[in-house]
Computed example of a mutant assay.
Amino acid sequence: MSSSSIKTPNVITCRAAVGYGAGEALVIEEVEVSPPQPMEIRIKVVFTSLCRSDITAWSQAPIFPRIFGHEASGIVESVGEGVTEFEEGDHVLTLFTGECMTCRHCTSGKSNMCQVLGLERKGVMHSDQKTRFSIKGKPIYHYCAVSSFSEYTVVHSGCALKVSSLAPLDKICLLSCGVSAGLGAAWKVANITEGSTVVIFGLGTVGLSVAQGAKQRGASRIIGVDINSEKIEKARAFGITEFVNPHDCNEPVQQVIKQMTDGGADYSFECIGDTGMVTTALQSCCDVIPVIL
C-alpha cells in the first residue's frame, strides 16, 4: 500500500456533555476530538449507561472541565500507530480499568488492577499525559480513561475489548463495568460453591449481577440487603431468595443476617461502595476458628 493511500484520521467535531464544576448541570457542547495517537483507538460511542461512579465524580471531582461516562459500547472509527488488535468497524466495549497484559497484575491471573493502565484519575491519556478533547483550543479532561458522554472518544487500545458484531450494543454497554464487576466477583474472585449462603449489600447493577452469578454457581440462599424495598421483585428475578431492609430491623442488620443463617453467611458482598458497610458485610459472615501458624 502506498503512503498516499493510507487514511490519516482528522480531528472530529461532535457533541458531548461537559461538566464545568462539581454538582453543576452538564452542558451539551461542540467539542473537538483529536485523532488517536500510538496505541490508541477512536470510538464512535453508540450507547453509554450511567454509573454511580460517574455521579460521585461529577459531584466531588476536583478536575474540570471534564467529560464523564465509562460504561459504553461503540464502533472503532480509527486506530493509531501500533494498534494490531483492532481495526476500523470493530464493535467494542470500553474498559475503565485497562489491561496491558504484561505487568505483574495482568499476568497474575488474580488481579486486573493494571500497573500501566489502571484506574486513571488525572483526566489525561496514559501515553503523553495530554487530553484528546478540546473546545476552541482549551483542553477538556477525560474521566476513567473513557469519557463516554461524547459522540466520539479516544481510549488506549488496552482500555477496550472487541466484541461480536451480533451482540446488541444497547444492552452490552452494562458489561463495561457493573455487570462484569458483579459476575466477576461471584464467579472468579469468590468462586462461590454450590449450596452456599450468600448475602449481598446493595441491589444496584453490581449487586444484582452478584446475585445472578451466585444463582448460576448454585448458591442455595441469596439474601439481598437494601434500604429500598421496591427492589424486591426485580431482585427476585435475578436470584435473590430473601430480602432484608435495614430500616425494618430492630437490631443491627449483621445480627439479623447471623440469626437468619445460623451463624453467618458463607459469602458476603458489599456492592455500595461505603467503607462503613464493608465492616457490616464482614460481620455478617460466619465465624471461623483462627489458625495460628
Rank of each mutant, 00 (worst) to 15 (best):
A235N: 14
T8Y: 06
I257H: 09
I135V: 14
L161M: 15
G204T: 04
V79L: 02
V256F: 05
A25Q: 13
G74V: 14
I289V: 15
C286P: 00
F64C: 00
K231H: 05
L183K: 07
V116P: 01
K188E: 02
R42I: 03
G123M: 03
R236T: 08
L282Q: 05
I75E: 13
D248Q: 09
S127N: 11
C51S: 09
T193Q: 14
G74I: 15
T84N: 08
V146C: 11
W187Q: 03
I55W: 08
A16L: 08
Q60R: 13
I28E: 07
G80D: 12
A186Q: 01
A57P: 00
C249S: 15
S34C: 06
K215S: 11
R42W: 08
G239M: 12
I289K: 15
A72S: 15
V154G: 04
F86M: 01
K136P: 02
T102R: 12
T94P: 01
C249N: 00
I28M: 08
R121N: 06
I200L: 07
R121E: 07
C103T: 12
E242Q: 09
I28N: 03
I6K: 14
P9N: 08
G218M: 07
V83F: 04
C159Q: 13
L161D: 04
A237I: 08
S220K: 13
K44S: 11
I6S: 11
S196W: 11
E194M: 14
T102N: 07
G202H: 10
G80W: 09
F86D: 03
K162T: 01
G218L: 11
D90P: 02
V155P: 07
A160D: 13
T56A: 05
T261V: 05
L50S: 04
V198N: 09
C51E: 08
Q216P: 00
I172F: 07
V225R: 02
G178Y: 09
L50K: 03
A281V: 01
F96E: 00
E87R: 06
G218P: 02
S134Y: 00
W187M: 11
N228E: 08
R132V: 03
S157D: 12
E233Y: 00
H156I: 10
E85C: 03
D226F: 12
F243Y: 15
A235P: 15
E194C: 09
P139K: 11
E29V: 06
E29H: 05
E81F: 14
A25S: 12
S134L: 00
I6W: 06
K171M: 13
P36A: 12
V291Y: 08
I240E: 04
H105P: 00
